[in-house]
Computed example of a mutant assay.
Amino acid sequence: MSACAQNPAPNGDAPRQGQPAAATNKASAEATKAGAAVAPAADPSLLRFDAKSVKLDDAAQAQLQQLLEPARGAKQIVITGYCDRKEIGNAKGAAIARANAVKSALVKQGVAAKKIRVKYTTDEPLHAAKVDFTS
């Protein structure tokens, strides 16, 4: 049975011997900031889009379902649309459209539109929309 404990984690994220798990998590977060590929559901509030799309795909729609309960209970919701201006000509328009697509989907599910604010950024190499809640 001790052999199982020596097998590395399937995703290779096991902390190195003597390295605290927090250090591994910090390194993972820094890799994410640098634009490294991560699992799509690593952050359930970050809905990824295809680089040339402003529509929620099936995976993002399913992910959005996880956000409905916190969205309904939140006092305010801020949705930030992201689009990499180095890749897309009208990055501002795409970023805003992504944020509005998420807003529309939440409103269709019963979240009050008046508590949702939309903003955008084109400064990061990311094609997504981020949903933040305040209680």
Score class of each variant (00 low, 15 high):
85 R>V: 06
94 A>C: 05
75 K>A: 04
90 N>M: 03
97 A>T: 04
83 C>G: 02
86 K>Q: 14
86 K>G: 05
60 A>R: 03
55 K>W: 02
63 Q>I: 07
75 K>I: 00
85 R>W: 02
84 D>T: 02
70 P>I: 11
91 A>F: 00
104 S>E: 13
100 N>W: 15
94 A>R: 04
97 A>P: 09
62 A>T: 12
63 Q>H: 08
69 E>L: 12
93 G>E: 07
90 N>H: 08
102 V>G: 14
66 Q>V: 00
62 A>Q: 13
60 A>Y: 03
64 L>T: 04
95 A>L: 04
76 Q>V: 03
56 L>G: 10
70 P>N: 05
79 I>Q: 12
57 D>W: 00
60 A>T: 04
83 C>S: 11
54 V>P: 07
87 E>W: 05
83 C>D: 01
71 A>N: 07
56 L>P: 08
77 I>R: 03
86 K>S: 10
105 A>D: 05
91 A>H: 00
57 D>C: 02
63 Q>Y: 08
59 A>M: 12
61 Q>L: 13
96 I>P: 10
66 Q>S: 11
74 A>R: 03
57 D>V: 02
67 L>E: 05
71 A>M: 02
103 K>Q: 09
92 K>G: 01
72 R>C: 03
88 I>R: 01
93 G>R: 05
84 D>Q: 03
99 A>P: 13
85 R>D: 15
84 D>I: 06
63 Q>E: 13
93 G>C: 06
86 K>H: 10
72 R>W: 01
83 C>K: 00
79 I>N: 12
63 Q>V: 09
80 T>L: 11
63 Q>S: 12
87 E>S: 10
95 A>K: 12
105 A>I: 07
99 A>E: 13
78 V>A: 10
62 A>M: 12
56 L>Y: 06
97 A>R: 06
104 S>L: 15
75 K>M: 01
55 K>I: 01
95 A>D: 00
99 A>S: 13
79 I>L: 15
100 N>M: 15
75 K>S: 08
55 K>A: 06
99 A>C: 15
95 A>C: 08
96 I>E: 10
100 N>C: 03
96 I>Y: 07
98 R>A: 14
92 K>N: 10
93 G>K: 09
56 L>K: 07
62 A>H: 10
70 P>D: 08
104 S>P: 06
101 A>I: 10
79 I>M: 10
54 V>S: 15
70 P>G: 11
101 A>G: 14
98 R>K: 08
86 K>F: 07
70 P>C: 09
93 G>W: 06
90 N>E: 12
96 I>W: 09
55 K>R: 09
57 D>H: 00
102 V>Y: 12
90 N>F: 11
78 V>R: 13
99 A>I: 15
92 K>E: 14
56 L>H: 09
58 D>I: 02
79 I>W: 11
71 A>G: 01
79 I>K: 10
88 I>K: 00
87 E>M: 04
84 D>E: 05
61 Q>P: 01
54 V>Q: 12
105 A>C: 05
68 L>D: 00
105 A>G: 03
79 I>H: 11
